[in-house]
Design a protein around this nucleic acid. Structure first.
Length: 311
DNA sequence: CGGCTTTGACCCGCGC
DNA sequence: GCGCGGGTCAAAGCCG
């Protein structure tokens, strides 16, 4: 069977054209690359914006918090703001010699999947109490078919990095690892360790370009970034991380959850990640555009445009 | 000792 | 209905 789209139930909006990129897309620009994002939850998951945190749009609107948020992602205020120069300085650590663990100009792309898939595996957990699993690993069978599963909005990032697990300020616990079909690299599953926080993330490495790590966040953090940061998230990024944010087309609000989940532009090696667009109308293919092959899940998570095939 | 990773088993959804 | 593969659980082991 065709395994390429096994994950189709995730309902990638990009694949279905549920909404125009121009309406929900969001693009940043770092160096000569930019990032496009779509807001998957705008129509399906109102609760996404019903959190104590403000939407990105709100942040953009003269909020003093914006700078902090922008900094947290190595972003500078949008052009509408006083300063708008694009400037991503190489990380001193990463520059340490011609040979760096992570290319400063690493690429990151992102996309999201629509909410509304399945996410009901928690049912199992709850019912776990009832039967004492004992030796036999009976994970429980009773399932609520009637209840439609809900999938949290997801955002995928392609990051050029040597390390699989990028530091993003949150604490994660690995709860699983699976071999990825057609890929020698396994996929790791992480869950936010903060109580009541159901955010998960998957990390896998592109099998064609091992230097590329695909991180997929699912859900939104219901808590601030832990203070125990090893990275630069949390408004502690150096000024050199300032870059430009290209305002969203159509004035779509930026998924706020993304703010708290986007991997640090600084990875553990200090490499600076950059983005390139997935939207055709913002297309500015960086020289280092990633060329990924037909890659099942990835294609579901990331707009197919990103996976441009070499002719 | 607590927190985390590892890993095999299990569940679930989908395509055939 | 069956098989496959993704996603998750949880026991066991590891580590600081």
């Amino acid at each position: 069977m065709s395994d390429e789209h096994r994950d189709s139930h995730y309902h990638d909006p990009f694949h279905h054209g549920s909404y125009p990129t121009s309406a929900t897309g969001f693009s940043f620009s770092l160096n000569n690359s930019s990032l496009s994002l779509s807001n998957p939850s705008s129509h399906d998951d109102p609760q996404v914006f019903d959190s104590p945190y403000r939407s990105f749009t709100e942040c953009l609107q003269g909020s003093s918090d914006y700078n902090t948020l922008a900094l947290a992602f190595g972003l500078s205020p949008p052009p509408s703001e006083p300063f708008s120069s694009v400037k991503v300085e190489q990380n001193p650590v990463a520059e340490g010699g011609g040979e760096t663990p992570v290319t400063p100009n690493s690429s990151v792309s992102s996309s999201s999947s629509e909410a509304g898939g399945d996410e009901g595996k928690k049912d199992r957990q709850q019912q776990e109490f009832g039967n004492g699993g004992e030796s036999s690993k009976k994970v429980n069978k009773s399932k609520k078919k009637s209840e439609k599963r809900e999938r949290e909005p997801r955002f995928a990032f392609m990051t050029k990095s040597e390390v699989d697990h990028l530091e993003d300020g949150y604490r994660w616990r690995k709860y699983g690892q699976k071999a990825v079909k057609n890929s020698p690299f396994p996929r790791s599953y992480y869950r936010c360790t903060t109580q009541k926080c159901t955010v998960k993330k998957r990390v896998e490495r592109s099998f064609q370009d091992p230097s590329v790590v695909i991180t997929t966040y699912e859900g939104q953090h219901s808590h601030p970034i832990p203070a125990t940061l090893r990275g630069n998230i949390g408004g502690m990024l150096p000024p050199s991380m300032l870059t430009t944010v290209v305002p969203p087309m159509g004035g779509t609000s930026f998924p706020q959850e993304f703010l708290g989940q986007m991997p640090s532009m600084y990875n553990q090696y200090g490499g600076v990640s950059s983005f390139y667009p997935q939207s055709s109308n913002t297309l500015t293919p960086p020289s280092q555009q990633l060329l990924l092959p037909d890659y099942g899940l990835l294609q579901d998570m990331v707009p197919s445009m990103i996976f441009k095939q070499e002719p």
